[in-house]
Design a protein around this nucleic acid. Structure first.
Lengths: 341, 341
DNA sequence: AAGGATTGGGAAATCGCTTCCCAATCTATC
DNA sequence: GATAGATTGGGAAGCGATTTCCCAATCCTT
């Protein structure tokens, strides 16, 4: 039952209703090491229930000096990659009794810096950066902000290749891509084109390098690495342009992520070519869609949800084992890369 | 430049550094109607810059009595439907200088009630409910919580059919589904099966009713309405079961949402049938994937991003026009429902 | 039965920031 | 040039919690 009072009930109200002091009420309702006699405890709880009391988290945060918040920074929450990741973060936060605040960078480094600064105002326990170029000129401002954040007592976690003092939850992009490349070469592919994001984005660079290594190591040849972006439309556009030129049947196009690869598949079809036997396509991440698309998308499975879950823990557990084994990646071959005769 | 102090700089620090009072520093840095002399303003700003000051949002919230927060409740953030919606919410929040906190219900009504209660602790300006059954026995507890939330001064916005005091950003599910049904009947379909969520979920019910109305009104016949859920897997499972029975060629299966429809498409294929001429499939929402899948998914376009954007404004704008026109829906026919000869 | 050790409630200080109120200075008016 | 009125800085009282002391009432031990 919740009393229909105007404004929220405060701890003060509860204490008065129960006829105890503020201190006692606080001890009963919001975790404290000190014990309170059963009779008092009951009275306080009854009063709280009756008034529909919920602790004011902001006040709690000011008093305690730290907020039960974790901030998550993603490039685009509508992108399934980040959606799945966020899902894991949210699950972990829920378990730990933390609130997740989310901010969108729109892949704009400037914006990212500004957001980190704004987020700092919340004094979150941790900050999870899921979308960032950790290198390049843009990174310097960001670095300063992260430093400030850490100095403030917050933990920074980078999803992907870590840097500096930040903890990182890494994915073996290079290894996974190498395995993919090797396996595809094993299927008989000899010519590949890679559609990557701009240089300096580690995730992309690692995947390109790994793929090249694996593919060429097993007898293939990477004919070209084109720069596109991380979006479906970027993949589509780049592939469309590519297909205006001469792309022989049997060529493999490796998209830097599944989202990109899906764009590529559509472009291939719209160019009047066929995905699979004619032009093979592979991606990376194994987002849910890859399973439902036809032909199925060959990819490297990244356990995104787990990754998010881990990131949450890296951001909040005091003693977190940086040496924890990386999450296992797995190559998944589907119809988009049929074996070449 | 940010000074390498331990702990965050407080307003107090800035005031001392600048040699002014707390009040003045506050007025300069955090919006106030009062003017401050240029010379003071400058000194304060310089000091703030030097110390890397960022206002403690929690303290600000306690002092002001309200937090610059909007809470968003979704069923599953990895679901593209909610992802796109959240995207719009985030954009609007960013423009309005608000922070978005996100919570996941996992489609569990009990959990939803608990979350609303927990979220109340943040004293957010608004609460956007994007995933909720507004009817049925489970709804009563929720209703109480929402009431309490509103009493506290927060605004509740329901995405979908509104109820009670909450503002609502509605989608004409019924009308859209009716248009879809009519159009498909016009393409020559005569027999349809609907895969819906459980009864009592308004969104689902409205879509079922609308579709039935439109389809039968144009000469079709809804043979059956099966209850599944709102997920891809639910759609897949229900369709798989369905296809074990006798489903004649030319039958149309309408999935209550695109996510469900995509599951259906996969089930159809896995059952050795063909999507399109053999078994037609239609969905609702027009999530991005529907464009890249083959055949393309016939659906009703719901401008999800705009919907989220609107919800944000409904949650925060003091005078919001409840009578604002509903967002336009549009039937999109793609290859999953070819014209029947 | 007496002295010390627990146990547990309450007053008050504190967290970082806003804002009301007052005093001092400045501007404008006649 | 005096006075009313408008500006603008600062002091201090909150906001809604937590937490450190302090002290009275118990409990245990010998």
């Amino acid at each position: 039952m919740i009393a229909p009072t105007r404004g929220a009930a405060t701890l003060h109200d509860v204490a008065r209703e129960a006829g105890v002091s503020l201190a006692t009420a606080s001890r009963v309702l919001n975790g404290s090491t000190r014990k309170v006699a059963e009779s008092y405890r009951e009275r306080v709880e009854t009063a709280a229930e009756k008034l529909g009391y919920t602790a004011n988290l902001s006040a709690q945060a000011t008093a305690r000096g730290t907020a039960a918040i974790v901030a998550l920074l993603v490039a685009d929450i509508a992108d399934p990659y980040f959606g799945q990741l966020a899902s894991g973060v949210a699950r972990g936060a829920d378990e730990a009794g933390l609130v997740v605040t989310i901010a969108i960078t729109e892949r704009d480094p400037q914006r990212e810096v500004k957001l980190v600064r704004a987020l700092r105002g919340q004094r979150p326990r941790g900050l999870i950066l899921a979308a960032s170029r950790v290198e390049g000129p843009d990174a310097v401002g960001l670095h300063g902000e992260l430093e400030a954040f850490a100095n403030m007592g917050g933990r920074v976690v980078v999803v992907g290749p870590g840097g500096g003092s930040a903890r990182s939850v890494a994915v073996d992009n290079r290894g996974g891509a190498a395995a993919l490349g090797a396996q595809l070469a094993g299927l008989g592919y000899r010519e590949a084109i890679v559609l990557a994001a701009s240089e300096g984005i580690r995730t992309s660079d690692d995947r390109v390098d790994g793929f090249t290594e694996g593919f060429t190591g097993a007898g293939g040849n990477v004919r070209e690495v084109r720069r596109a972006g991380f979006t479906r439309d970027a993949g589509y556009a780049a592939a469309a342009e590519l297909l205006e030129g001469d792309v022989p049947a049997g060529t493999l196009i490796f998209g830097i992520s599944d989202v990109v690869a899906i764009g590529i598949m559509s472009a291939v079809r719209d160019a009047g070519r066929q995905v699979g036997a004619d032009i093979a396509v592979a991606g990376f991440d194994d987002i849910a869609t890859g399973r439902d698309i036809r032909p199925g998308l060959t990819t490297v499975r990244v356990p995104l949800e787990d990754l998010g879950y881990r990131a949450l823990h890296a951001a909040t557990d005091p003693e977190w084992d940086a040496a924890e084994p990386q999450l296992p990646l797995e190559v998944i071959v589907r119809g988009s890369t049929p074996p070449r005769a």
